[in-house]
């Protein structure tokens, strides 16, 4: 909490953009940090479930990051984790009611995983690593970026699993009645396989510029 005492200048647009895109891409919670694996594997068997879980987590992240950043100077160090968990649990309870009010089928499909957002390590991780040290605006953007990054990753998984496992995307059938669904992709092992494939694609894509640079160095040598 070293720089808590430092004076707060309004963050520049560039800084804000960085806080946002950090979570969405560079530090994507699923594809780069490999956090929050439980909902990532459990509720991505359809795009609808993946989106709902992603957006619910985003809501909790934005709200908890904002509130935690607001009270960060008041919270004694000894009770900070307890305070964070209290705040996170509040927003999870709220989102639980909201989803039930919006759509009961979605609520049933997500089941216990809504309540389990409270133990999603991304949320407590952002509270401790970011919101407790940064001003409100940036913390909110960080939560939004991380949340949307999480939702994006979940949708990537849900898309592959729904297309292969049910032949549809968001419930719209893509291939006609004769399509043979690959049931495996709706089952838990399909979640692991799809996640592995996406991690492979993502990390090899991120490694590409480095490889190019290495090749250039070799040529220069």
């Amino acid at each position: 909490m070293a720089h808590v005492h430092g004076q707060e200048l309004p963050a520049s647009t560039a800084e804000n953009m960085e806080a946002f895109f950090n979570g969405l891409w560079n530090q994507n919670p699923v594809f780069v940090q490999v956090l929050g694996m439980c909902p990532t594997l459990a509720v991505t068997n359809s795009v609808r479930n993946a989106l709902a879980m992603g957006l619910a987590t985003t809501f909790v992240l934005v709200c908890s990051n904002t509130l935690i950043s607001m009270v960060r100077k008041l919270v004694p160090k000894q009770v900070r984790i307890a305070t964070y968990i209290l705040i996170i649990a509040t927003f999870v309870t709220i989102v639980d009611y909201l989803i039930k009010a919006i759509s009961i089928p979605v609520y049933k499909a997500l089941g216990a995983f809504i309540a389990l957002i409270v133990v999603n390590c991304i949320i407590l991780g952002r509270a401790e690593a970011y919101a407790s040290k940064n001003p409100v605006g940036k913390s909110m953007l960080d939560g939004l970026g991380m949340g949307l990054g999480f939702a994006f990753a979940l949708t990537c998984l849900g898309g592959v699993r729904e297309i292969l496992g049910a032949g549809s995307f968001l419930g719209i059938h893509l291939f006609g009645a004769n399509f043979q669904p690959w049931v495996l992709f709706l089952l838990p092992p399909g979640g692991f396989l799809t996640l592995a494939a996406w991690l492979l694609i993502f990390s090899s894509w991120k490694a590409r510029p480095r490889k190019k640079a290495e090749a250039l160095e070799e040529i220069a040598a």
């Binding site: 009270v71 004694p76 009770v79 305070t83 705040i87 509040t90 927003f91």
Partner: peptide, 15 residues
Amino acid sequence: MIRLMGSVSLICGLL
């Protein structure tokens, strides 16, 4: 600490 936890709980409860 107690004062802070109390007020945070109060806000959360209200929400």
